[in-house]
Amino acid sequence: MNALAARRRHPAAIAVLLMIGLFLTGAVYAAVAPEPADATSLALPAQSVEEGKALFRANCASCHGLNAQGRPTGNGNQIAGPPLAGVGAAAVDFQVGTGRMPMTQPGVQASRSESVKFSDEEIAAMGAYIASLAPGPAVPDAEAVDPTKGDPARGGQIFRVNCAMCHNFAGSGGALTRGKYAPSLRDVTGKHVYEAMVTGPQSMPVFNNANITPEDKRNVIAFLTTIDQEKAPGGMTLGSLGPVTEGLFAWVFGLGILVGCAVWLGSKAA
């Protein structure tokens, strides 16, 4: 408690408090609003939009343009940042909330990062700004991504048909062309999985609600949560990458240990 008291004047304290407040509001809202919030409205006051606009101009406009209209690099067809009108708050929440944006350096693909640069409130504000430009997918509410309400078996079937070819059977990720890749889905929050499906970030196709219904999206999240929690019945998973790592393990450790035993067996006792 002392540590908590000592930090109550910390600049982040307000943000934390706001976060808790927002979370509670969200939770109450989720409890009273059963509809999956795929509508394009966002219950945020107007000053959020203004604040988001300011944040956007300061942090994102260098690539995405001052009014989020996108910007070319002047190098052929390549773009510095795509136009963002219509991508929705869900895209902002996914890209910024997983640490992909802002990109530290240009690359084939923005990668997930542990260090998220903005507070949830700031992300929500930027999302409100982007959503105000044109309608787009909103951030899903807590119920829409609640794994306990989904059916993991059905989610598994949806996952294997629609997701496993890129993200691998256990969501460990996989390679795409020319250095791009489908990232690992292990320990990704249900909200971000949902947002990725509705917004189709980077190479990923869009899975709109006509393609995979909101219920099935929740089932997929339930499946991913189940395999996350199940850990490994058989022991170390070796990255859940299939026979390659198993073969490597057999060669390095299996053979190594057995050859070690053989050397001991063939050596003369002291």
């Binding site: 294997r160 059977f169 390679a175 998973t237 026979p243």
Partner: peptide, 28 residues
């Protein structure tokens, strides 16, 4: 066998010609 998982068939799901998993390899 006690400590290192091999070929988690339950995770792959049943065979179906339509789905596929990334990293489809044979044994080494």
């Amino acid at each position: 066998a006690a400590l290192v998982q091999i070929n988690p068939v339950w995770a792959y799901g049943p065979y179906d010609p339509s789905p596929v998993t990334a990293g489809s390899q044979p044994d080494w």
